[in-house]
């Protein structure tokens, strides 16, 4: 069965630990951005632009975008890890080749990479959450649930990213998903303005297809402590199921690329 269906083992955590060790070796460059970036966005958009926007549905603009900033950090931390960084390890550093010469299988290696991508999402969004709490723009204690949720959301974006990495001929072609998929999602997922102001078909499209729209929905419910149960559960179920499917699909695609 192992031959036909990708089954990672606990050895995947060895790969995760390798990436974690590298991350903490260079923690100075890794930790500063997640603290500074949200401050910049909060000041520029939340307070600057927010002056003109006022409230959105009774919510101050700065509180409206705070969960979006969290969701975007989950997306960026995991997506860019499992595209450019994974591609570098796979293609330029030959790290995967070195790993599969040990008892690790390619399934273990890719699963470890995905788990690490999810962990980065957790680390970055947690760091950002600290800043947002300090500014008093997120509700407590419900916002703390963002921390475990960010791992799931990170695993989703890692899976998406790894699929692109598996089919990308060069590192430059990863620019296509980065600019044509991530950037539009960044803008049109109910991040800086509610989806409801968009034309109906686009709203439907966003809620049916865009992963970030689901992640923003869940995160916003948590940071505003305002739950619309149907929408919340729909988005959560959407994330969990797509995440599970892509976890295995991305491993399969990588196996197809690397095991020749």
């Amino acid at each position: 069965m192992r031959r036909y269906f990708p089954v990672p083992t606990r050895l995947a955590w060895k790969v995760w630990r390798r990436n974690r060790d590298v991350f903490f070796k260079t923690y100075r460059v890794n930790f500063l951005p997640p603290f500074i970036e949200p401050v910049l966005y909060l000041l520029a958009l939340g307070y600057g632009l927010g002056m003109f926007v006022g409230d959105i549905g009774g919510v101050p603009y700065v509180s409206f975008i705070a969960p979006a900033l969290l969701a975007i950090s989950m997306m960026n931390a995991s997506f860019f890890e499992c595209t450019y960084s994974s591609f570098v390890r796979m293609y330029y550093q030959k790290t995967y080749d070195a790993m599969v010469a040990t008892p690790l299988s390619i399934e273990d290696v890719i699963a470890g990479e995905l788990l690490w991508g999810a962990t980065r999402s957790l680390i970055y969004s947690s760091a950002m959450l600290v800043v947002l709490v300090a500014f008093g723009v997120v509700a407590l204690p419900s916002s703390l649930l963002v921390i475990p949720f960010s791992f799931l959301a990170g695993l989703l974006f890692s899976g998406i990213a790894m699929c692109f990495t598996a089919v990308s001929p060069t590192i430059d072609t990863l620019n296509y998903p980065a600019f044509l998929f991530i950037t539009p999602m960044f803008l049109f997922s109910g991040t800086f303005f509610p989806l409801s102001v968009l034309p109906g078909p686009i709203q439907v499209f966003a809620m049916a297809v865009l992963p970030l729209a689901q992640v923003v929905t869940v995160t916003r419910s948590l940071t505003l402590a305002e739950l619309s149960p149907v929408l919340f559960l729909y988005s959560l179920a959407w994330i969990a199921s797509v995440c599970t499917v892509l976890f295995f699909v991305s491993i399969h695609l990588m196996k197809r690329r690397l095991v020749i």
């Binding site: 060895k14 630990r17 060790d21 550093q93 030959k94 790290t95 080749d97 070195a98 010469a101 040990t102």
Partner: peptide, 25 residues
């Protein structure tokens, strides 16, 4: 395994390369 292409882990020092590799085993 000694592969034809050098695939040491450039993110680590010499000893770390060995220690991280030992973990895989």
């Amino acid at each position: 395994i000694v592969p034809q292409e050098t695939n040491l882990d450039p993110d680590f020092t010499c000893i770390e390369n060995l220690l991280v590799y030992a973990r895989y085993f």
